[in-house]
Simulated scan of single mutants.
Amino acid sequence: MRMRSLITTSLVGLSLVVTQASAGAAAGDPLIDKQWGLQQLHAPEAWASSTGAGQTIAVVDTGVDLGHPEFAGKLVPGATFACGGAPAPCGNGDWTGADGVGQEADVHGTHVAGIAAAAAGNGVGGAGVAPDAKIMPIKALENGSGTFEEIGAGVRYAADHGANVINLSLGAQPGIQVLTLLGIQAATKDAIAYARDKGVVVVASAGNETAPLCDTPSWEQGALCVAATDANEMHAIYSNLGVKLNLRAVSAPGGSSLGDCDGDVWSSVPRGMGKPECGQADYDALAGTSMAAPQVAGVAALLGAQGRDAAGIEDALIHTAQTPIAGLRGVYNPVYGYGVVDAAAAVGYQG
């Protein structure tokens, strides 16, 4: 059975002005004033306490452009598990894969990695949520899709090779949760449980079908499900709700997918693959819960750098998340889960 990644690439408009805090923290990043998601997360305020140094975020996805300037000096060894039937691993996590040919859909992993941990203040692009964290590139998808077994193998590799946080911006179609509940398909579910038992935080996207339940793998008990918000902090129209059996769900910026580029999430893409309409060769604006999950993975790395264990990281994320309009913190509702993640509040959370 193929598990495809859910990649929403339509664009939306609403540009916001960067605050003084982020301008100072990431001076020299020309796209920083377009990164409204950092403001929604209150990430710049959190950077005074933690920038994610010493943490590694594994991006189990379509691979990463290993030569992109946003990741210079930030990569740890990765692996490729999308091997077309050949023995795995068959590569180092580069987005072009075993055949060396990059697919358009496979810009996704580089975008996700940049959201989580792009370098700050390096004079190009923008800043990641955890700008001093390392990235472990794991290519488990080719041309935007992969099997449960390939994804599970990528998760296990990350857990065995020093990842502190694993990001899964991918998901199966609604209804596939039944297969994992019944044990018919357990490769990714078991891999997530394995990683969690090793003390790794697993963050996964809710899905983009406007469905009531988190897709698998975000549905699984060991994963934190992330729904998407737009630039107005409203639940994004495409996003699945944050509903799963153990209620471990939050929300984060994912973009609107309605119009021009600045209402979506700006991040790195493989060099030369940026869409002409957004005007950047090595960067692009995409929308989806795929973009929301790495925002949370980045905050998890900020918390891990403070010495918190996996349970402590999840508790801080959940208890400080805030529900828009109502202003409640750490109170579950099916639309936002426990609320929009607040990095500044989370790094100050004492439990």
Rank of each mutant, 00 (worst) to 15 (best):
A186G: 02
V200G: 03
D94Q: 06
A293M: 07
C261W: 05
A79E: 07
W36C: 03
E149P: 03
G54H: 06
L181A: 03
G100N: 04
A301D: 10
N92Y: 01
A316W: 11
L181S: 01
L6Q: 15
A58H: 08
A88I: 13
A27H: 08
A211S: 13
D262R: 02
G24P: 00
C225S: 10
G175V: 12
Q306I: 09
A98P: 01
T9M: 10
A206S: 15
A204D: 10
A287S: 15
V107K: 09
A193C: 04
A26G: 07
L303A: 05
E150A: 14
V226C: 10
R156V: 14
G146L: 06
K34Q: 12
Y332R: 07
E150K: 05
A311L: 10
G37P: 08
V226Y: 11
Y194A: 05
Q173W: 13
T289H: 05
H42M: 06
A227G: 15
R4P: 07
D65A: 12
A21M: 01
V124Q: 12
K139Q: 14
E150L: 04
I7L: 13
R196G: 02
D61M: 06
T8C: 03
G263D: 06
V112A: 02
Q35C: 06
M291F: 04
L11Q: 13
F71I: 04
T289Q: 02
E45F: 01
G84F: 10
A163D: 10
R248I: 08
A133S: 13
A120D: 07
E209Q: 14
G126I: 11
Q295C: 13
G222M: 11
K34M: 00
A72G: 04
L75V: 03
W36H: 02
M3G: 01
K244A: 01
Y349K: 02
A287E: 03
G13R: 10
Y332N: 08
A86G: 01
Y157N: 08
L286S: 00
G255F: 06
A321P: 04
G109L: 05
A140S: 12
H68D: 00
E209Y: 13
L317C: 08
T9I: 14
A287T: 13
A187G: 05
G67A: 14
G339Q: 11
I7C: 00
I151K: 03
N240E: 05
G242V: 08
T188S: 11
A285H: 07
G28F: 11
A297E: 11
W47S: 02
G84M: 07
K275L: 11
L170Q: 05
K275H: 08
N92F: 01
G85F: 05
L245R: 12
A310Q: 13
G52Y: 07
Y283W: 13
V250W: 07
D282C: 09
E149Q: 14
C261M: 04
K74W: 02
V203T: 11
E233S: 14
Y349W: 15
